[in-house]
Design a protein around this nucleic acid. Structure first.
Lengths: 152, 152
DNA sequence: GATAATGGTTGGCATTGCGAACATGTCGTC
DNA sequence: GACGACATGTTCGCAATGCCAACCATTATC
């Protein structure tokens, strides 16, 4: 019982901590958390708007604006989908890729003092446990069980 | 050597997962993530505005509006600080406390299928590892004692 | 007591995110 | 082939988040 509560607590705390780091790095580069996430997701794939929206848990209309702004900054680009005329594909520009790469480095460096507290064995353990916990299917998501290249 | 990357990855993934659950529960109750967090923080203490802002990593002015809305909904209340006339203390109303209690229950229930994947021993281990990782000074934690500029 | 420093609020601004309404494209049925 | 159902994105209007700069009130410092 209380063991449950402790785990929840630890997960929430670490989540907020991670988010704080991501938010800070984003802010330093004029990117919101969501934009950061988009950059992370598109780093190794091209996606259609709806797909992306579902993945992020956002409305299609929200994504329109999001992509608009990122496109205006030259980080993303829209392209037609050859197979379906309705679909709009989104993908990274070279500038976007470069930025994503740089931010990932910053993120790892920012987290290094924390993760450095663990020895390799503990690191594996932590990864294993988190995968166990998070391995169950997310609330929703027909497409790809939620695993994406989580921005780092 | 990619062991580091794996940990970062797992942490980010679990962070987004936890946030998604919190966001959903908040949305179902017309509360933003930040409001949820405020409710969580004030559950067992009373705090002044600046203190709260620093803890959340937000600007004072952001908090004004946040507390305004929560106060209008009867969840929080403002009070004078006896020791310092400039200070505004914020604390939960009974309604706020009740809501916070309920949401915590919802959250635990939502996470149960995930945490239930672990046996008690693994649970302890996960808590321990997370505390190790997060126990160190965060590279960018909000409101850490002396060090560091406002960093937003 | 004058001047600084601290604590909160206000107003202006861009962004986020939702829902509803809309335009366009695809597909199934006749 | 033409029609209507459906799917995909965009646009518009709205409230909320969050920042900054400017401001008022109170406290500290000299």
């Amino acid at each position: 019982m209380t063991s449950d509560a402790l785990v929840d607590d630890a997960l929430v705390r670490s989540a907020f901590r991670v988010m704080a780091v991501l938010t800070r790095i984003g802010a330093e580069n004029d990117l919101s958390l969501t934009q950061l996430r988009v950059l992370g997701i598109l780093r190794d794939r091209r996606a259609r708007m709806t797909e992306l929206a579902a993945f992020l848990g956002l409305d299609k209309s929200t994504l329109s604006g999001l992509v608009d702004r990122a496109e205006r900054r030259g980080l993303l680009a829209r392209g037609k989908n050859p197979g379906d005329g309705r679909v709009v594909d989104v993908f990274m520009t070279p500038a976007g890729l470069e930025l994503a790469e740089r931010l990932q480095g910053e993120f790892r460096r920012a987290l290094a003092p924390a993760t450095g507290q663990l020895d390799p064995g503990q690191r594996d353990q932590l990864v294993h446990l988190l995968e166990l916990v998070m391995g169950t299917d997310p609330p929703a998501g027909p497409a790809r069980g939620g695993a994406g290249p989580p921005l780092s």
